[in-house]
Each structure stands twice: as structure tokens, then as C-alpha cells.
Simulated assay, not measured.
Amino acid sequence: MWLVYDSEEKLVLVTNSYSEALAEYKLLKNSWKDFIDENNEFNGDERVILARIEKDFYPYETDEETPEGDNYWDWRESIY
């Protein structure tokens, strides 16, 4: 599992596909380079990250319904 992070957009992508993550990383990296070259602005906190995810903790909607008819939520952790 892979993630792409951008200092402005924050978490951009989470995917099982390395090639998809790498393509998004390259796109964002080139966008930052082009922006800085064209505008001559540089703050120093511009950052794009491609990272492999080892663990992922997140909420998910269960199949169980509340008395009001909404689904219950629970937590799940995936280890890759």
C-alpha cells in the first residue's frame, strides 16, 4: 500500500498500485517545480512525499444497523 502527500493538498492518494502512486508523485513534483520556476516564489515548506504504508488504522461502516436505521461504525487496522 502506498500514499502520496503534498504540502498544500495534504493526503492526496492511498493506493495498492505503486505505479499509480509514482505517477501521482511525479505529477505533483513537476507541478511544484513549474510553479516555483514560473512565479519565482519559494517558501521552503514545499514537499511531495511518496511513502510505503506499513499500517493503516481507519473507521469503517459495519453491516449492523442502529435503531434509527443508520449503520454502526467500527475501527479496523490493516498491516501490509
Rank of each mutant, 00 (worst) to 15 (best):
D70W: 06
M1G: 13
N39F: 01
Y80C: 05
A51V: 01
E8Y: 11
I79K: 15
N39A: 03
V48E: 01
Y5K: 07
R52W: 00
V14M: 08
M1S: 13
R52V: 11
V14L: 11
N43A: 11
L50D: 05
E61M: 11
P59A: 07
Y58Q: 03
V4F: 05
E46F: 02
W73R: 09
L50G: 03
L28T: 01
E61K: 15
T15S: 12
D74G: 11
L22H: 10
I79W: 11
E20F: 00
V12C: 09
Y5G: 07
Y18W: 09
W2D: 05
D63P: 00
D56Y: 15
W73T: 12
E9A: 14
W32T: 03
K33S: 10
D74E: 13
E65G: 00
N40C: 05
F35H: 10
I53S: 04
E77W: 13
D6V: 07
E46S: 06
E68K: 12
E20C: 02
E61D: 01
Y72Q: 03
A51K: 12
I53L: 10
W73V: 09
L13Y: 10
A21D: 05
G44I: 08
E64C: 05
F35D: 06
T66M: 02
Y5Q: 05
V4N: 08
D63S: 14
F42V: 09
N16Y: 04
S78I: 13
S31T: 13
E38L: 08
F57N: 00
E77N: 06
E41N: 07
W75S: 09
V48R: 01
W75N: 13
P67G: 06
E9Q: 15
Y18V: 03
Y58W: 11
D70I: 00
A21Q: 06
E9F: 07
D70R: 09
D34K: 15
E9S: 10
D74P: 06
D34S: 15
K29G: 07
I49Y: 01
